[in-house]
């Protein structure tokens, strides 16, 4: 039997969910026997998201054009997409700029002009630095999601309890405090 093609991606998030994933400790070794890591910021060095991925963990919210392009591609090429952590599920902290209502402008100005120590200027490099979207969105508002795994970050136990059934071809039961508590 072919190994399960496994990927993780990191959109607008703090990478805390990926750190929690690394907290899986020795289960990572078991996991490595069962899956091929075909794309991941922490697990492999491939630059292009391949076709025919079985399972992908999506950390982070959709905040810029790069995120959007990647998640569209990931959705088209992936069987089971898991919203991984509160940023992916609710847009969480990255989305707090949505309260400011005027798109990305207020945060950019605050960060690059008002708080600049020297040489204040707004970043603008088309094709190199992706433009921010007007609103930061949870992933399921952009593409359909198969499994939601909340948590900021989800604990290693929760990640394991979600992945283990999937690796055996079963659906994880996302119920109860251990599995779906936010925060």
């Amino acid at each position: 039997m072919d190994k399960i093609k496994f990927a993780t991606i990191w959109l607008a998030g703090c990478s805390g969910c990926h750190m929690s994933f690394l907290d899986l400790d020795e289960f990572l070794i078991d996991l490595a026997d069962l899956v091929d890591v075909v794309y991941s910021p922490v697990g492999c060095d491939l630059k292009d998201y391949p076709e025919g991925v079985d399972v992908c963990l999506v950390e982070g919210a959709v905040a810029n054009e790069d995120n959007l392009e990647l998640i569209y591609q990931v959705r088209r090429r992936t069987q089971t997409l898991i919203a991984f952590g509160d940023c992916a599920v609710t847009a969480n902290v990255p989305a707090m700029r949505n309260m400011l209502r005027e798109g990305a402008k207020p945060v950019l100005e605050r960060g690059y002009l008002e708080l600049a120590d020297e040489n204040p200027h707004l970043p603008h490099a088309p094709g190199i630095v992706p433009e921010l979207l007007d609103r930061v969105l949870p992933v399921h508002e952009v593409v359909p999601i198969d499994i939601f795994m909340p948590g900021c970050p989800p604990s290693a136990d929760r990640i394991r309890a979600t992945l283990e059934p999937l690796l055996q071809g079963q659906q994880p039961a996302m119920v109860g405090r251990d599995m779906i508590k936010f925060g």
Binding site: R135, L137, E141, V142
Partner: peptide
């Protein structure tokens, strides 16, 4: 159609 299906990457206008 959902945007991801037709491959357009126009920013999701919420």
């Amino acid at each position: 159609q959902p945007a991801y299906l037709n491959g357009t990457s126009s920013a999701a206008e919420a």
